[in-house]
Write a protein that binds this DNA or RNA. Structure first.
Length: 462
RNA sequence: GGCCCCGUCGUCUAGCGGUUAGGAUCCAUGGUUUUCAUCCAUGUCACAGGAGUUCAAUUCUCCUCGGGGUCACCA
């Protein structure tokens, strides 16, 4: 059974990059009937906040990504880590290092001056003398000093590191006893049963260190899959400064979960020429071996297109439900179907759709000057007048076709083109020349409101 | 700087030795629409560069260049 995880440190909101790796992990677990678990890496007390954890959970909730089982909090697992530290100490696989911070700094400076790689020199590796006074020792793990470390990565292939290039006896527990990241990650991933690690490739160079821990503890290695970064337009790592990268901001902007997820799954992953993926398809088609090796640039053009696509192809029930989040309650509107059918073709976002609905539903109180100038030429008022009377005379006006028939009748009677009626009528009804079909608008707002808007326009003396 | 990763249209990508290098998006044009949007059609645009290997390289190898990541008692 595949068990994947998402392991954010709660220092901020969930952003696009994190969401994508979470999505990949989720999909891969679901495809295999496995589990997708959540671990909050909250060991850095100074930078963590509970709000951040809640924000992440909220985002998952919005997107419908459910994690399996209880959430693991690293801050509650000190006992576990302490146990393994002791074990490694007892087995002689780790040791106490009494080097002072000053000495360590000095060592590094010397190495830098000599253009050498900065690394711990192993001074206390085999120390059995009397430890210096007044130093709280750190615990260092005995890492291999030579040989190859090969990360068999599911995305990148075999990545070969030389121990002497990258390793030293790194710290697994600080002077105050607190364990370090690379140590706890290995322990938690193993204890949580995670056998498929999917994470950003900024972790690739951490992996050998974690492998040292796995090795020392005798844990079997999981499958690593390092997915490439998402870069901003400038080609740099996506940061919070690159606009609205908080996932919940996309909700505010009117994006649907389906569109956002579809957009993200195609960033760094593809399945032939397919662009549109339902959640079911994503789950069945996704496989980490198909993840790209190269970083991609974050560009929302396609997200907009996808969002429009999903809005157009949503049922009106779904849309009405989604629109309640944008302050629009349509359940009671008797022309809801016509309203949404005609407007959902025209909106790129739910927010836009909501404002489109409001525009149609509210009586215009001002008229766009350019539109007025263009539409109100000779005879426009007369045409509006006649149209208003014709509407008034009609008993049965319900559907767009009913209103269309009225327009057609007037055009024939007055021997004028359709546009002669449409232009001024459009301004009267909507306040401007662009917008949805007039037949639909009138059917939606009804006979009374139509007549009111026509009368208003005539009175306004345009 | 050391180590590691990456390099196909502006962007997301297909390609896995022989293709007119495909799709999507964006942009432009035309059609549909009384308008706008949608929709449909068409078009512009790419293998970073150089050496090899090969009958044949976008595809394999090496080098160069370019971009990114990482080098903590942060995660």
């Amino acid at each position: 059974m595949v068990v994947t995880r998402f392991a954010p440190s709660p220092t901020g909101y969930l952003h696009i990059g994190g969401l994508r790796t979470a999505l990949f992990s989720y999909l891969w677990a679901k495809e295999n009937g496995g589990k997708f678990v959540l671990r909050i890496e909250d060991t850095d007390k100074a930078r963590n906040s509970e709000e951040a954890t809640e924000a992440i959970l909220k985002a998952f909730d919005w997107l419908g990504l459910e994690h399996d089982g209880e959430i693991t909090y690293q801050s509650q697992r000190d006992d576990i880590y302490a146990k393994y530290i002791k074990q490694l100490l007892d087995e002689g696989k780790a040791y106490k290092c009494y080097m002072s911070k000053e000495e360590l700094t000095e060592l590094r400076e010397t190495q830098m001056a000599n253009k050498e790689r900065t690394k711990y020199n192993g001074k206390y590796r085999d120390f059995d003398g009397t430890p210096p006074e007044g130093i709280q020792p750190v615990i260092r793990i005995k890492a291999p000093q030579t040989g190859e470390i090969i990360v068999k990565d599911g995305v990148k292939g075999d990545v070969v590191f030389q121990a002497e290039d990258i390793l030293d006896d790194f710290v697994i527990a600080r002077g105050d006893g607190a364990p370090t990241y690379n140590f706890v990650v290995a322990i938690d991933d193993h204890l949580m049963g995670i056998n498929q690690v999917i994470r950003g490739d900024d972790h690739l160079s951490n992996t050998p260190k974690q492998m040292v821990v796995y090795e020392a503890l005798g844990f079997p290695l999981p499958k690593f899959n390092h997915v490439p970064m998402i870069h901003n337009a400038a080609g740099k790592k996506l940061s919070k400064r690159d606009g609205a990268t908080d996932v919940m901001a996309y909700k505010e902007m009117g994006y649907t979960p389906a569109a956002l997820l579809n957009f993200l799954v195609r960033l760094g992953w593809s399945h032939g020429d397919q662009e549109i993926f339902s959640m079911d398809e994503m789950i069945h088609l996704f496989n980490p071996v198909d993840i790209n090796k190269s970083a991609s640039i974050y560009n929302t053009d396609k997200l907009d297109w996808l969002n429009a696509h999903y809005i157009k192809n949503s049922s009106n029930d779904e849309l009405a439900q989604l629109l309640t989040e944008y302050g629009l309650v349509l359940t009671s509107h008797d022309k809801r179907e016509i309203l949404l059918d005609t407007l959902k073709e025209r909106a790129k976002t739910l927010k836009e759709l909501a404002s489109l609905v409001n525009e149609v539903l509210s009586t215009p109180h001002e008229y766009d000057a350019k539109s007025v100038k263009k539409a109100f030429k000779d005879g426009a008022i007369e045409i509006l007048n006649n149209f208003g009377k014709k509407i008034d005379a009609c008993e049965e006006l319900h559907l767009p076709v009913d209103y269309h028939a009225v327009m057609e009748g007037l055009a024939t009677e007055m021997e004028i083109g359709f546009g002669k009626i449409g232009q001024p009528l459009r301004v009267a009804l909507l306040g401007k020349l662009s917008g949805p079909g007039l037949d639909e608008v009138m059917a939606i707002i009804g006979k009374e409101e139509t007549m009111l808007r026509i009368a208003n326009a005539i009175t306004a003396n345009l």
